[in-house]
């Protein structure tokens, strides 16, 4: 297995637990436990405002919450983003800074932009441009590709398929399947039809608690009010 940053070879296990968060009187997350390991794509579903983004940001280390514990292979990793080669995170909002071209951003992330866009040759000509010069869907696709190809043990994606056209979503799903051979991936996205077949495990964040869904996730998603039919 390929080396993931400074973590060394071998499969890795990312665990987060004790995550509690409240906004005012509203309890958003209540003692959540989450586990992702190398070779897995884990899906995180939940209604709007259920705390999915907050959970990802907490695991990433950008949001400090008391009592939260994030561990990799049993060792504490807080804040996770500060540990070289451990984790990267795609936020719901645009990621790339406006002052750099996509190629410059890739270089900073230590990603070979040509290799990252191998499956999308039409994007190559646009690598010299800044994110403000491209369509939102194209930028989103490039952001996901850069983070997928970055040498980190884990990738957290918040709405990775947002704005991306269906043919590219299908291609991206295949690339994610390949990438999970060397990293663990956590995805949250409302495009459940694309997310469910992609995932090895699916969690639903409901009323602050994380529930792992079983063999028939659609039925459970209906039961919890995430799907209507």
């Amino acid at each position: 297995m390929r080396r993931a940053g400074a973590l060394g070879a071998g499969p890795h296990v990312l665990e987060a637990d004790g995550i509690r968060l409240a906004f005012g009187t509203r309890q958003v997350l209540a003692d959540v436990y989450l586990r992702v390991q190398t070779g897995q794509i884990v899906g995180l579903l939940g209604r709007n405002g259920s705390g999915k983004s907050v959970l990802l940001q907490t695991v990433f280390g950008a949001r400090a919450t008391p009592d939260a514990s994030v561990r990799v292979n049993g060792r504490r990793a807080v804040p996770a983003f500060a540990q070289p080669g451990l984790i990267n995170y795609l936020p719901q909002v645009p990621l790339l800074p406006p002052g750099a071209s996509l190629r410059q951003a890739a270089r900073l992330l230590r990603v070979d932009a040509e290799q990252a866009t191998a499956g999308f040759p039409e994007l190559r000509a646009q690598l010299g441009q800044g994110p403000g010069e491209l369509s939102g869907g194209t930028v989103r696709l490039l952001e996901v590709l850069l983070l997928l190809h970055a040498d980190t043990a884990f990738s957290l994606f918040d709405e990775p398929f947002s704005g991306i056209m269906p043919v590219h979503v299908e291609a991206l799903a295949l690339i994610m399947q390949q990438a999970k051979q060397r990293k663990g991936i956590l995805i949250t996205d409302h495009r459940y039809a694309e997310v469910l077949p992609l995932c090895d495990a699916v969690y639903l964040l409901h009323q602050g608690r994380l529930r792992q869904l079983g063999a028939d996730p659609r039925a459970e998603l209906r039961d919890y009010g995430y799907l209507a039919t």
Binding site: A62, F81, Q83, Y89, P91, L95, P97, L108, L147
Partner: peptide, 11 residues
Amino acid sequence: PDQYWFYFNLG
């Protein structure tokens, strides 16, 4: 407020 995400990804 969202300008930091890229830099966090650089550690």
